[in-house]
């Protein structure tokens, strides 16, 4: 086992443990903290895939902004004051469906001949400069649409959250 593989297994184990924590934790706050672990693990996976720009974006947007937003809403909805069952009655069904999906996906991944599809053996590092050039040249229209979506969604979120105060 090479060093690279060893690092991958450690990062993957951290990610999967974080994910397990998110879906199994008894407390909502613990689940949110496990989510941070999982997201940072995914950032590590991005680094192993030589996508260093995306790893940084991942840490900034997910590791910080999204988790803090989630923790804020947990605080505002006072979800931890009421000790109650966090899982619904469909738990066994969910377990069966999740396992079946995992089995299906893993079977598909293992049986596919990736070399025939042109999978390379060596990951080439993508320079952030090239990525930015591609984003702003070839993908500028989707980029602008995404910024429009962002501003509409966030203004909508502010209006939704403040609606009650205006009604009073």
């Amino acid at each position: 086992m090479t060093l690279e593989e060893g690092i991958f297994y450690v990062v993957a184990a951290v990610t999967v443990l974080g994910g397990l924590g998110v879906v199994l934790a008894r407390s909502v706050v613990y689940a949110a903290l496990f989510l941070i672990v999982a997201l940072l693990g995914v950032a590590g996976v991005f680094l192993l895939l030589a996508a260093e720009f995306l790893a940084i974006v991942q840490v900034l947007i997910y590791g910080a902004a999204v988790t803090i937003l989630i923790l804020f809403v947990l605080m505002l909805t006072r979800a931890r004051d009421v000790p109650q069952a966090v899982d619904g009655p469909q738990k066994p069904f969910a377990f069966v469906l999740g396992s079946a999906l995992l089995g299906l996906l893993v079977t598909a991944i293992v049986t596919t001949d990736w070399a025939a599809l042109g999978a390379t053996e060596q990951i080439t590092l993508v320079p952030a400069r090239e990525l930015g050039r591609s984003l702003f040249r070839n993908w500028s229209v989707p980029f602008e649409v995404a910024s429009l979506v962002l501003i509409v969604a966030l203004v909508g979120a502010v209006i939704l959250a403040r609606m009650e105060e205006e009604e009073e």
Binding site: V16, G19, A32, A38, V73, L97, G98
Partner: peptide, 28 residues
């Protein structure tokens, strides 16, 4: 690894009651 995370997310979306927890599973 992606398949494991996705299956965990599907399980979380179906099994959890709290909307915030479902949202976290969607993030996974």
């Amino acid at each position: 690894l992606g398949a494991i995370l996705f299956a965990l997310g599907v399980y979380g979306v179906l099994a959890r009651r709290s909307a915030v927890l479902i949202l976290m599973s969607v993030e996974l």
